[in-house]
Structure formats: structure tokens, C-alpha cells
């Protein structure tokens, strides 16, 4: 997959000046609806797991300034602006979060999708079930130290899986085995995310 083919048109169709972004013209503020661009292309990043958070934020704010409906309130492009802005916000949300980012990358590189492969890493289901029971017990008896121990354990397991996801996602596109393993890790981390949300 080659991201360089789908970058900005060289010149703005409206004012014929060179364009710095695929979404809008810096000079005349014309908008370029970009249904076809994936999240990485939208930001001008290569499709890779590692992203510099500062660069992501800077780019996000720069693009937002160009497309946000507040800056196109009176123009006939307000509908384009609304959609572009929604697309940009979604792309930012996905790229900001390592799990969503890995999930999205895996999809870009052909999956398997969560609906097609529901496998989890060995032992995760049993561990998560046991932890859930422990949490319920601790909550029922109001045992604060036990609850804290559970929380620490869940956080640690979550961190371990997160590290695994990073390691595998960096190998993408990788062989089918890497992709299946990433799929299983992504499926697994959901159990710990849910537990963390409840703690």
C-alpha cells in the first residue's frame, strides 16, 4: 500500500495556489471532501503503528483550523465542513488510542476482522473471569485493599497486552500468523478494558 499516491492535489482548483493539505486550501479556504482517504493519509502520516503524539496533535489542530464548521459558518461549504470535521475527529480519535490504532492498521492490512476471528490469547478468558469474581467479592465486602490489589493486577495485565499489541502492530503487514496473533491480543485486551472501566 502506497500512501503517497493519495496526498494533496498539487494546486487548489479555486485559486490555483499550491496546497499544503489534502483537505483545504490555506489561501482561499476551499474545502476538498476526502471520502477516499484513510486516517493516516488524512494526517499525511505513513501507515505505521508508531506516531509522535506531538506531531499528531499539531497536525490535528492545523487541519481542524482549516475545516472546522466555525470557520465556514456563512459559506455554502458548511455541509462539507461538517463532514470533513467529523471525519478528522474520528481519524484523530483512532490514531490517538494505541488499541484503536492497531485495530485500524490491522484492518488496513487485510485483517482478520474481529467479527471473523473471535479467538483470544490462551488463559485470558479464565484470568479475566477469576478477576471479575475477585472484584465482585471485594466490592460486596467493602474490602478496599483487596479491591486495590485487583485493580493493580488488571492494570498490569492490560499493560502487558498493550505492549504485545505494539510489538505485533510494528510488524504489520507481517505474515498471516502475526496478524492472527494481533487479532487475538486485540480481542483479549477488551476484557481487561471492560474490567478497568468498572473499577
Amino acid at each position: 500500500m502506497d500512501s503517497s499516491t493519495k496526498t494533496a492535489p498539487a494546486k487548489c482548483r479555486a485559486c490555483h495556489r499550491p496546497m499544503g493539505s489534502p483537505l483545504f486550501c490555506d489561501h482561499c479556504h476551499s474545502l476538498y471532501p476526502s471520502e477516499g482517504l484513510n486516517h493516516f493519509e488524512l494526517f499525511g502520516f505513513p501507515p505505521a503503528f508508531d506516531i509522535d503524539p506531538a506531531a499528531l496533535r499539531q497536525k490535528y489542530l492545523q487541519l481542524s483550523r482549516g475545516v472546522h464548521p466555525d470557520h465556514h459558518a456563512a459559506s455554502p461549504e458548511s455541509t462539507d465542513s461538517l463532514r470533513l470535521s467529523a471525519q478528522l475527529n474520528e481519524a484523530h480519535r483512532v490514531l490517538l488510542d494505541p488499541v484503536l490504532r492497531a485495530e485500524y492498521l490491522l484492518e488496513l492490512f487485510g485483517g482478520p476482522a474481529a467479527s471473523a476471528d473471535k479467538g483470544t490469547l490462551e488463559g485470558v478468558l479464565a484470568t479475566a473471569l477469576q478477576l471479575r469474581e475477585d472484584v465482585c467479592d471485594a466490592q460486596a465486602t467493602g474490602d478496599r485493599p483487596a479491591l486495590d490489589r485487583c485493580a493493580a493486577r488488571v492494570r498490569q495485565l492490560h499493560e502487558e497486552l498493550l505492549a504485545g499489541i505494539g510489538e505485533l502492530a510494528r510488524q504489520l503487514p507481517g505474515d498471516p500468523q502475526v496478524r492472527r496473533r494481533l487479532r487475538a491480543t486485540l480481542n483479549s485486551i477488551k476484557y481487561y478494558q471492560k474490567l478497568l472501566g468498572e473499577l
Partner: peptide
């Protein structure tokens, strides 16, 4: 102030 932003008078400001 938001009205001024919408009037295009504050192009550098961004409200998310």
C-alpha cells in the same frame, strides 16, 4: 466571542 469567531473575525481560534 463565539459570534465573532463565526463572523470570521478570529481565524486562529479553535473551539473543540
Amino acid at each position: 466571542i463565539q459570534a465573532a469567531i463565526l463572523s470570521g473575525r478570529q481565524p486562529d481560534m479553535l473551539l473543540l
